[in-house]
Design a protein around this nucleic acid. Sequence first.
DNA 1: TATTGAATAT
DNA 2: AATATTCAAT
Length: 352
Amino acid sequence: MIKKLSNMNYNQKRERCGQYIEALEEERRKIHVFQRELPLCLDLVTQAIEACKREVPETTVENAYGQPECSEQTTGECGPVLEQFLTIKDSSTSNEEEQEEEDDELDDEHGNHDPDKDSEDKNMKSDWLKSVQLWNQPDPLLLKEERSQREMMETVVNRDESMRKDPATSGGDGRKREAEKDGGGRKQRRCWSSQLHRRFLNALQHLGGPHVATPKQIRELMKVDGLTNDEVKSHLQKYRLHTRRPSQPAPNSGNSQTQHFVVVGGLWVPQSDYSTGKTTGGATASGTTTTTNTGIYGAMAAPPPPQWPSHSNFRSSIIVEEGSGSHSEEVVVRCSSPAMSSSTRNHYVKKN
DNA sequence: TATTGAATAT
DNA sequence: AATATTCAAT
């Protein structure tokens, strides 16, 4: 009896998986059109499909008892991905959402099981862990090993929640108390972790570039609570500064401008950052990629492009569209971002 | 007043 | 260099 039941159950689930795969494949077909704009998307969907296929077809017999779950308690890697996509599927086809999820997801993945990375990446990892709360919470002494697992899981599940939770509220002493205590003291510095910065960039992207994005908008898009307008403003200011045309401060000697950039929503971003280098299929936007590339965020540690220190978060340079093609092999991808169209301050399109 | 960008200050 | 704060303009 029970046997039968569970069997049924399994078959059902299996069927569901099949349907799911179909759905995914359809989705992939759709996305495929935007291969250039959403290479990561494509990649992820592809991966998901593959993962599903891997899990479903084979394990017919053994799994009858083992782990009938296809989408629930899946083993490690597949789980999160599936859930992610399920969510996406549920929330219908909102491109922006998708994109956002994408990025986060991507980061997670890289931060977790990318094999080839060392010193730099260890930093990344711990950083990633620390920035589960995005703020600099004073607990660098905990062992990463144990925590990593636990927190990773937690984070994957309700990553967003934990993020927008107020640090002061959740046990840690935030900047608040000190600030309150000492009325005249300065605010505690906000540390822009790469995660935070990523969200920043993301928002920027959605808003159509640093020139059109406004601090408030950015803050709202980032959905990181506790984050202040002023903080964003400051960060934005710095970003803009560093993002200007590298003219004087770049004593870049014979640096061959071989950096490949991608314009996405008005954002110039090193191709490596955008396509994460881990492209499957032809997703690589025009295969110029120097495969050695590594980005700050994901699994890459590329040499600082034009003038940025490698430890810096800002790796993109905004360059207003101009034909003066001094950059040899730039790839221009235009991504119709919602904010691009609706913005009173679109003056950034001004050429030269 | 609220928001913003630039200039300063730390 | 990276944030915070101040200031003037909108």
